[in-house]
Design a protein around this nucleic acid. Structure first.
Lengths: 225, 225, 225, 225
DNA sequence: TATGAATGAGTGTTCATTCAT
DNA sequence: TATGAATGAACACTCATTCAT
């Protein structure tokens, strides 16, 4: 797959802590070569994460796949976790841009279509960043700030739903709507996970349609067949 | 919490590796003292699993909490995994007995009540065995047979739903019902997880009522307000 | 096989060292029951030694086969090694009695016959105590006195050969004869080992005849066919 | 002793167990430093093997003697056994090259001289690789392929003898010759062992002369004095 | 900018031996 | 006389991280 976001922005979240810890891997002016290596490591990290999962991911694997030495890895990332942070940041950006907004969802065909667009965005993100998303949902991340990044991202996604759910069920109070949104996100994520990563094979298009229909009917009073 | 099922049934799955020398942790006739230690280890295992998660669980922690020596651990379990298998078996039994059946769910108050009973069973199991259930759902288990135990358990639970969903939506074809059931299970599990193990404070009774209502309305044409 | 020498004589070799070390497992007046247990342990020890070899022999295996508890083992033997010492003592006795003497070996049929008798004695001992003999020959024994017992036993066996070899080659000096005897013992032991414990299938009677003929011809100027 | 064969050829036999993650000790391009360490480990392995024997050899000892860390060991060998495999391979090569061939052995002085050359080769190998050879002869090796390597090596050595023994005793049938060869190898190995590793001290040159004379007379109708 | 080499704390598991009952 | 239970030192192996070149 393509190499995206090869800019080493050094996740920015944690750097505020006391001593300016590591002198290396810091925001450095990278030349073409450096950019290439950085990108290779990010991509390799993605591959390893996908293949081995968050906990079983080894720096060894990453550098082998990226075809660089161990030393080089620590030239670009202070930590194993730092690599994951970078990946997570990519993921958060993509999710926000793809499913950070949701148009009005009425009970008719238009509402269903809008829902399908949104669900499709989610499923697409999942295909790429499934492991990261899961690490968030399953609270596997070890560091505080990585967890916070996840929480924030999901709150953003939830918020788009809350607004629409409130419109669809004007009688429901705020708490009820929030819980519905949570349940909805939960359902979408797990369902996509089952279909994507486990045996439940179902053509990708079908996944989106099925999920959207389910949500439309169950949460938006949808009445399409 | 109480000590349950202190009988060391030693799941019988013989590892089959190398010379079978002396099977330490094999089915032994235990006396009172032995039962106590076995139970202490199971309980400690549960605690460690809860605190550290499946992957980060260390035998070290287990024996420290159970207040026994390292050697003692391997007197009762052949493996770290063997302990988890025992825990998982307990979980599977409890789930099957508690939510292995679901009465007819009509669209009225009776249906909602039955649903609440069922959801309550799930939430109760989750309070006790959440980590195990999550390990299954998140496919964290490393061994074949542990994974199979999970699959089987969840199929049992799903099956109870499929039957009722089919009754509630006679027009839906088999595949649609299966997918709905999957989505339903996914939603219940994740929702309970969020509420139980993450910040989403909600009184336990409320969780059950909320979930049941959501399901009743969304999946069983429920019409209670 | 039968239980031999069930009398717990506590190998006698090491007891002379300083403090009367272990208060248990000492020469005790055993009743019938005790004798039985002691014998069971000896037999089990033999079995384990045969099956697992000297180094891989585990107390665990011994007590399991003898069907007694760990504690009981240490009631009869101070050590794992102590059990081996007892076994080795048995072996030394049997070897001394069976092949502690060798008649005149002339170059004719009578010489060959006498040689066959002697070799048969060795092979018989080997069938029973092979592991012990090998442990001696291969210097696997960890303790000083166990090694000494082996050395002494083999010196006894060697001595019977030296006398006869000297008669057969009157011209050879003392050193030459000693070396020949050593080479002879070496050959017999290894050859028997190969045939007995490794793939070299050969009917037991044939082993004896072959070895005797080889020795007769090579070391005693034998001229039978 | 000198450092030989520092090239890490990593015997190629893939263990095949579990996920192949990152094969640490795999064929890596070594630089001078790496070669040095690899050689240090091989040498240390030899020392430990000699001092402690095959079973009692500890990785701990090896790294202490080689003066490297534990981790470093596993950078060069996948296993404790892998180190032994490397040593055994060295041994097999040396034996094959030194005693893989034996010229015609007549009953005169020339035959004796050729025999002495051959025996000297064996004794030399033994001085260096005694422990490995013994591990083979005594069947102490745990792994299948290590054992096979030993069998093959000894078959090669045996074969050189079989050919000559057949010439020397044209009347003997095939089976007899094979058994004689086996007995011969057995004798040579054990004799050398006794002399080399146990108390029987005898000047090295004398060992060779004695053994060769013994064999010449006993197996090749030798008639020198 | 990159690399091969080295490290060492940490982790699961084994096993001879002791002890209270 | 016997037992079930417990112990803890010992050992093989892993892996994130550092460093000299």
């Amino acid at each position: 797959m393509a190499t995206r976001s090869a800019t080493p922005k050094r996740s920015g979240v944690n750097d505020g802590g006391g001593t300016p810890s590591a002198p290396r891997a810091d925001a450095r002016a990278l030349r073409a070569q450096g950019h290439r290596t950085h990108a290779k490591l990010l991509d390799a990290g993605m591959v390893v994460l996908r293949d081995r999962g968050y906990h079983a991911a080894r720096v060894d694997d990453v550098v082998r796949i990226a075809d660089v030495s161990h030393g080089t890895f620590y030239l670009y990332f202070t930590n194993k976790e730092d690599l994951f942070r970078a990946l997570a940041t990519q993921c958060a950006e993509e999710m926000t841009s793809r499913i950070g907004s949701l148009g009005v969802v009425d009970s008719g065909a238009d509402g269903l279509a809008e829902l399908e667009r949104w669900v499709d965005g989610f499923v697409t993100c999942y295909a790429e960043y499934g492991v990261v998303i899961r690490a968030w949902m399953e609270d596997q991340v070890s560091s505080r700030d990585l967890a916070r990044l996840g929480t924030r991202t999901f709150r953003t996604v939830s918020a788009t739903l809350v607004a629409r759910l409130a419109e669809a069920s004007p009688d429901a109070d705020e708490g009820e709507v929030a819980l519905s949104a949570a349940a909805l996100v939960a359902m979408i994520e797990r369902f996509t996970y089952f279909v994507t990563s486990r045996g439940l094979d179902l053509p990708p298009g079908e996944v989106v349609r099925t999920l959207a229909a389910l949500i439309h009917r169950g949460f938006f009073h949808g009445s399409i067949n």
